[in-house]
Design a protein around this nucleic acid. Structure first.
Length: 428
RNA sequence: GGAGGUGUCGCCUAGUCUGGUUUAUGGCGCCCGCCUGCUAAGCGGGUUGAGGGUUCAACCCCUCUCGCGGGUUCAAAUCCCGCCACCUCCGCCA
């Protein structure tokens, strides 16, 4: 939810942001008129209610005839108060419904347009030339099969398409990445967390995932619970309905959790291997801070992602995601995309968003400042390591001619010092 | 799943049986001031949050806010119903 005051004071800014997202500008005028209706109904109700309270006080002390007269008057008034309250509740709900459907006000620096209108900010690492090295690169599934690290056939047998087993060195690789990610995050000042992956609608809705992204979320109707698509959800809801002391900020959390995504509308996309799956594990960074500090914090999260991918020796670029591709909560988003040799292009590995006060307004997370002031907290999130895509990038980028895979130096201590993963022998 | 108990301002707490003069009591913490070599202590004052009106802004005025939502009533922290969370016990399961 955006700041209602911004809507009232500077509707043109909201209109401009909507336009850059490619979304309705007219909704701003609907909101403005709903706000007027709402405020008028509040004033009307409060006038009647104040009168009722006044009379109630007199009744408490009145005696005899005087009391009877007052009772007769106020009985009628009670009905009017009730009606006015109903009108107000309705006007409030109408305003609120419109308000919650409005995405966050995109940052003016976020490029206008949709998915393809991103701007490349940086490029890191060197892309290997496999032709020059004298062999054809295998894709991650081939490599994963050779190494007996990835089993998608049995994943499909047991759970269906877009499921997989990580086996042997594949399983150990996940644990190594997780351990390395959590250790680094803790050194950077994040509190390690293992959050619930099953949440109530409040948490899911509060983080903005039951809006336009609802079709992508697994829902368990028997219990009205949701499987999270990212631990951003439980981490954002962690401090819901709380007042945070300003001096305790920033609060940084790093969570390891499974993620579940229905991938509705992505039929036929990335069907091979483990690039796009219904379930995966991820280490996610999350920060609570002030609006003022959020922009610097966003850069900081990006720098951690950069440092992480560099440690894994992966070639990647950073893009500034266009306004229309931000999702409802974010004002700005940076994606780190790793080079995927067999696809000949960069693909998203990590993503960091500044959600400013959008999620906090819905989840009621406030900060008490030094002067006793209160304001909604700002929330930010960033991927540190999404396991399957990271494994994919590692296998493809560090493969050798015989199907072995070189282990980047920083990861070696987490794999018993191994510097290479070798294809397993034949047979089961 | 069954039985019982609890939920009050950042934290603790009085008030609930017996509805109204409650502007929800007091303490801790915090903020401001006084005092004092400094600090602490002491003394005095302030301190729930959200929204609306007014305003350049503030002061100020009003409404809502006692876990959440409904109901009864002229009037609800207080009475009734539903839900949620926590605690104790029983059952079941890992």
């Amino acid at each position: 939810m955006i700041d209602p005051r911004l809507l009232r004071d500077d509707p043109d800014r909201v209109r401009a942001a909507q336009a850059r997202r490619g979304e309705s500008v007219a909704v701003v005028d609907d909101l403005l008129s709903a706000d007027v209706t709402r405020r008028e109904s509040i004033a009307a109700f409060e006038r009647l209610r104040a009168e009722q309270k006044q009379l109630g006080k007199q009744i408490a002390t009145a005696q005899g005839d005087k009391r009877a007269t007052l009772l007769a008057r106020t009985k009628d008034l009670a009905a009017q108060v009730k009606d006015a309250e109903a009108v107000q509740t309705e006007a409030d709900a109408a305003f609120h419904t419109l308000m919650t459907s409005l995405p966050n006000v995109a940052d003016e620096r976020a490029p206008a347009g949709g998915e393809d209108d991103y701007v490349v900010l940086e490029q890191h690492g060197t892309i290997r030339d496999f032709d020059a090295e004298g062999f054809t690169a295998r894709d991650h599934l081939e490599l994963g099969t050779l190494l007996k690290a990835i089993d998608v056939e049995r994943g499909a047998k047991v759970s269906g398409a877009r499921f997989y087993f990580l086996t042997g060195v594949g399983a150990m690789l996940e644990l190594a990445l997780v351990q390395m990610a959590m250790e680094r995050a803790e050194q950077w000042g994040f509190t390690p967390m293992i959050p619930p992956a099953l949440v109530r609608s409040r948490a899911m809705d509060g983080t903005g995932f039951l809006g336009q992204a609802a079709a992508d979320v697994y829902h368990l109707p028997a219990d009205d619970m949701y499987l999270v698509g990212t631990s951003e959800v439980p981490l954002a809801a962690y401090h819901s309905d709380e007042m945070l002391d300003g001096s305790s900020l920033p609060r940084r959390y790093a969570a390891f959790s499974p993620c579940f995504r229905r991938e509705a509308g992505s039929y036929g996309k990335d069907t091979r291997g483990i690039f796009r799956v219904h379930w995966f594990d991820k280490v996610e960074m999350f920060t609570y801070t002030t609006l003022e500090e959020s922009y610097a914090e966003h850069e900081r999260l990006l720098s951690y992602e950069r440092e992480w991918l560099t440690a894994l020796e992966l070639p990647f670029r950073v893009i500034d995601v266009a306004a229309g591709d931000l999702g409802a909560s974010a004002v700005r988003k940076f994606d780190c995309e790793a080079w995927i040799p067999t696809q000949g292009r960069y693909r998203e590995l990590t993503s960091t968003s500044n959600c400013t006060q959008f999620q906090s307004r819905r989840l009621d997370i406030r900060v008490r400042g030094t002067g006793g002031t209160t304001e909604p907290a700002a929330t930010l999130n960033g991927t540190l390591c999404a396991i399957p895509r990271t494994i994919l990038a590692l296998l493809e980028n560090h493969q050798l001619a015989d199907g072995s895979v070189r282990v980047p130096q920083a990861l070696q201590p987490y794999l018993q010092g191994r510097d290479e993963l070798k294809p397993a022998g034949s047979g089961e």
